[in-house]
């Protein structure tokens, strides 16, 4: 990710940068400067700015191998807008996914159908809410929903990322919505794959990195 230096100081700090900032007090910096013999003609804010930017570069370098294209699942079979819900649900189960992109004839992503969308269509907000009602009254599922097409229930517009999206872009995209997976698009906007949040988190885990 390119960092625009003129924005670096006015941008609100990201959570990860704030952690680095709050760990470092003026006293820490002054104490470190005392430990280095000789006069250092920098101020504590010079040091803080350098540290802050260098830290960003280090993080970018450490996680430079994380791109959406490298982590995504390619073998995803997307839904089409007119797929009835009754066919969409088995497709989730077969692919062991909890959300599936919905594409048109040119594989352009129109939306994403998530487990939550399906549950809402069936008249429940969450799986547990549904379960509670199943236990109380077996007829609670709105069975007439089964033939509704996917496009009536799906989440759209969808938050998606390009193939070359790096860690920062992926973090920002995942934090913008509650979905468990994100469609990855080619440069011309067609579906390239699906990036599950779990896969992304595993790739970010510092202890599992080479």
């Amino acid at each position: 990710m390119n960092l625009n230096p003129s924005l670096a100081f006015s941008d609100p700090l990201s959570a990860e940068d704030q952690i680095a900032e709050t760990n470092l007090t003026d006293d820490d910096i002054l104490e470190a400067m005392r430990e280095i013999p000789g006069y250092l003609d920098i101020t504590t804010s010079d040091f803080r700015a350098l540290y802050h930017l260098a830290h960003r570069h280090a993080v970018d370098r450490l996680f430079s191998d994380i791109t959406a294209g490298r982590l995504m699942r390619r073998e995803v079979r997307p839904l089409t807008p007119d797929t009835p819900l009754a066919e969409a649900i088995p497709s989730f189960v077969r692919q062991d996914l909890k959300s599936l992109p919905v594409v048109d004839g040119q594989r352009r992503v129109l939306g994403i159908l998530t487990e939550t969308d399906v549950l809402r269509g069936l008249g429940a907000e969450t799986f547990l809410a549904l379960l509670a009602r199943v236990i109380a009254d077996a007829k609670c599922i709105k069975s007439e929903q089964h033939h509704r097409p996917v496009c009536e229930l799906m989440t759209a517009p969808v938050v998606s990322v390009p193939l070359d999206a790096g860690m920062r872009e992926l973090l920002a995209a995942f934090s913008r919505h509650a979905g468990r997976a994100m469609p990855v698009l080619t440069n011309d906007g067609r579906l390239a794959g699906l990036l599950p949040r779990k896969v992304f988190l595993n790739a970010c885990h510092p202890d599992r990195r080479p």
Binding site: L30, P37, G38, I42
Partner: peptide, 29 residues
């Protein structure tokens, strides 16, 4: 490119941004 935040922040900059100058060097220095 000037900052758009106006006179208050312009004057605020004159207060300085850090607490005090770098520490005094040791006597051998």
């Amino acid at each position: 490119r000037l900052r758009p935040s106006g006179l208050k922040s312009y004057l605020g900059k004159m207060r300085g941004s850090t607490h005090g100058s770098p520490p005094r060097v040791r006597l051998p220095e």
